[in-house]
């Protein structure tokens, strides 16, 4: 019995190593798209790492699903196309679940409801002929402004908006509710005396969710269950408190 002990130990060691290798090989890695220019939802912090409410939610979902996630920064305009093409398993980007988007990608259950904010110089109302409005390309707000026939200036990042307003290149911006919080606090626009108008048009408000690879409905179910879990155990509300001044609902 004693003579066999070393050989048994070797066998156990080999088995353990093999199990570890297999487990590593079988570990699922999810490719997750994030934005980096939509504070407080997604941005790059001082250390250069992705941060923000949506990034925190994405990490919490992956932790709940017990999968490893690889976060990749993409432009908002390319999010739906990339997810629809299967380049990402899901996108941790707050997207209004419009019919056009739902036809191309799967959507998680809504994790909050949003509307859109019209920031403008005094007297510039939505749809006014004098209005030159800026919006992020690929956003629901940009498509809406274009659809309304407004004079629209497309930008790639939300961070470009304060400079445009400050320089007078546009006299209004149209952007989502959550993102407007950061813009409103930007020092460049404090002196402009901008007025705020909440737009409740159906194309600009409604349920917001994560977009998911349309070939993977099972992942949608897992993400939905994970959303329920992080809302029950309080992680969702803690992230909410960390990044936003009020509760997302």
């Amino acid at each position: 019995m004693k003579a066999r002990t070393p050989s048994q130990a070797c066998c156990l060691l080999l088995l353990g190593l093999a199990a570890g290798v297999l487990a590593h090989a079988g570990e699922r890695v999810l490719r997750v798209a994030i934005l980096t220019n939509s504070p407080p939802m997604s941005y790059t912090d001082a250390s250069g790492k992705p941060a923000g409410f949506n990034v925190g939610v994405a990490r919490a979902l992956c932790e709940t699903m017990k999968v490893r996630c690889e976060l990749t920064v993409v432009e908002l305009a390319k999010v739906v196309d990339a997810v629809a093409a299967g380049e990402f398993d899901f996108a941790a980007v707050s997207l209004l679940a419009t019919p056009a988007r739902q036809a191309r990608v799967l959507f998680s259950k809504p994790y909050y409801r949003s509307n859109s904010i019209w920031f403008s110089q005094p007297g510039v109302t939505p749809g006014a002929t004098s209005a030159r409005v800026a919006a992020v390309a690929g956003s629901a707000q940009y498509r809406y402004a274009r659809a309304q026939g407004w004079n629209v200036v497309a930008v790639d990042h939300h961070s470009e908006l304060p400079a445009l307003l400050s320089a007078g290149k546009v006299n209004a911006v149209l952007l989502p509710m959550a993102t407007s919080l950061s813009l409103r606090a930007n020092p460049l626009i404090q002196s402009l005396g901008l007025e705020t108008t909440v737009l409740q048009a159906p194309e600009l408000s409604g349920d917001v969710g994560f977009s998911i690879d349309p070939r993977n409905p099972q992942l949608r179910d897992h993400i939905n269950a994970a959303f329920d879990q992080i809302k029950r155990d309080g992680r969702f509300d803690r992230l909410n408190t960390e990044y936003l001044p009020f509760r997302l609902q």
């Binding site: 909050y112 409801r113 949003s114 509307n115 904010i117 509710m177 407007s180 919080l181 409103r184 606090a185 020092p187 404090q190 705020t196 909440v198 409740q200 408000s205 409604g206 001044p245 009020f246 609902q249």
Partner: peptide, 19 residues
């Protein structure tokens, strides 16, 4: 600025769909 920001958040909250 702080008062304006507070007014802005009040506007957002009072027009929030969930509210």
């Amino acid at each position: 600025v702080a008062r304006q920001q507070a007014r802005f958040i009040v506007s957002l909250l009072s027009s929030h769909p969930a509210m």
